[in-house]
Design a protein around this nucleic acid. Structure first.
Length: 152
DNA sequence: GCCAACGTTGGC
DNA sequence: GCCAACGTTGGC
């Protein structure tokens, strides 16, 4: 079992959006970063646990827990000229971008803010907190995953 | 809106 | 393959 953190801008797709989806599931489309793609395509397994993180908003932080319910498959939005995620260089016969499906496990009672995470010495070394980190999908150590949720 | 940090692109 | 220019992310 692996642990992950996935970022989303709540203006675009929030934890409440996930909660309101049929089956509380959603295909994680639109990832256009190779490192993030590789994590999804190569390392994410069904049942893996995910910290759902709100970025670029008034109160950035962890807002929920989700799990991987479908392993990587081609991201069809890359083939759709109407999509904002369209990438003409992604060929349906040789897809460049992949996505997984995630499902909400629970929404947290409150936001565990980035400011709090930064103050917790037990989270030293957490990738999210590394300088200049911009990855939207990244691995989380189990110890860090548990620590974050213990801060509720 | 600013800006630091990082990724991608493309000329050479 | 180098690297400057440009685009994006994301906190503040």
């Amino acid at each position: 079992m692996n642990y992950w953190l996935m970022k989303s801008e709540p203006d675009a797709f929030s934890i409440d959006d996930l909660a309101s989806r049929s089956g509380k599931r959603e295909p994680w489309d639109g990832v256009r970063n190779y490192q993030a793609r590789n994590f999804m395509r190569d390392d994410m397994k069904k049942g893996d646990q995910v910290l759902f993180y709100h970025s670029s908003c008034a109160e950035p932080g962890v807002v929920g827990v989700a799990r991987v319910v479908k392993e990587a498959y081609p991201d069809a939005t890359a083939f759709d000229p109407e999509s904002k995620y369209f990438d003409p260089k992604s060929d349906p016969d040789k897809p460049r971008w992949f996505m997984v499906d995630i499902q909400l496990v629970r929404k947290l009672k409150r936001v565990i803010t980035l400011a709090e995470l930064k103050q917790n010495p037990q989270l030293e070394g957490m990738r999210l907190l590394a300088r200049g980190n911009r990855l939207s999908v990244m691995p989380v150590e189990k110890e860090h995953f548990d620590t974050v949720l213990s801060m509720l």
